[in-house]
Amino acid sequence: MAIVAQTSRAGRISRATFAWIVALIFFFPIFWMVLTSFKTDADAVKPEFLFFFTPTLENYLNMTENYDYWRFATNSVITSVFATLFTLAVGIPCAYAMAFNPSRATKDVLMWMLSTKMLPAAAVLYPMTFLTKNFLGIYDTHFLLIIVLSLINLPIVVWMLFTYFKEIPKEIIEAGKMDGVNTWGEVKEILIPLAWGGIASTALLCFIFCWNEAYWTVRLTTTEAATLSKLIEGNRAPEGLFFGRLSAVSAAAVGPIVVLGWFCQKQLVQGLTFGAVK
């Protein structure tokens, strides 16, 4: 404690102030987007209304009219929710088997799964378009996006679940086996209740990644299944015309996800570094 006290009071205060300034600078673009979303399109580009202006909700109220926001938002919700559910449905049994019945191949399988994640998406752009458009006829459908989003997130999900499941003592599962519980019962009655927190945060992170995905959602959709990424990408260069309304639709697209993200900071480290940083 004596050592801690050596750091001077002035030093601590200036450190805290500096930290706050840095944080505010980083948050400023998001703040600016939200602020602009309450200005009319005309006010948004006038220097005299930079910080002081008459706030209006007009941009939010007209989102449907201007951009058909809710259709795109609904598509984002549908594809992200179902992709997350599907990924968990495939990932939980897989991670369960790997954590409780590891074989010599388990490590290699896990590494191989990760390596699929490192394949650059652009390399398979044309085959994916060709297969889904000409061959399977599922281009621009929710079904396609759900499958693709699941597959790109499956490695991370299996990986994260595996690290959570590994923490559960094997004896608990063994005890269940003695009582004559079958595999499905083990998963449902023992594993899921015990690892509930881990599963929930994995699901949350998977949902965020699905929501923000911006390669396949842009390249594999046109109108029917187009998500919010596609909507924003389609309105990319307004040359100052629609700053107000564009800010509103952008804020509506990222707001819920940023808030969700605040709740899974810790899992983010684990999920993105595959457990290599603790």
Binding site: F26, F27, P29, I30, W32, M33, T36, I208, W211, N212, A214, V218, L228, S229, K230, I232, E233, N235, R236, A237, P238, E239, G240, F243, L246, S247, S250, A253, V254, I257, V258, L260, G261, W262, L268
Partner: peptide, 17 residues
Amino acid sequence: SPFFVMPAVNAVLWINM
């Protein structure tokens, strides 16, 4: 917070606003 902003919004926000 910036990490959770979707890439499309990030680009549109910076290049325009």
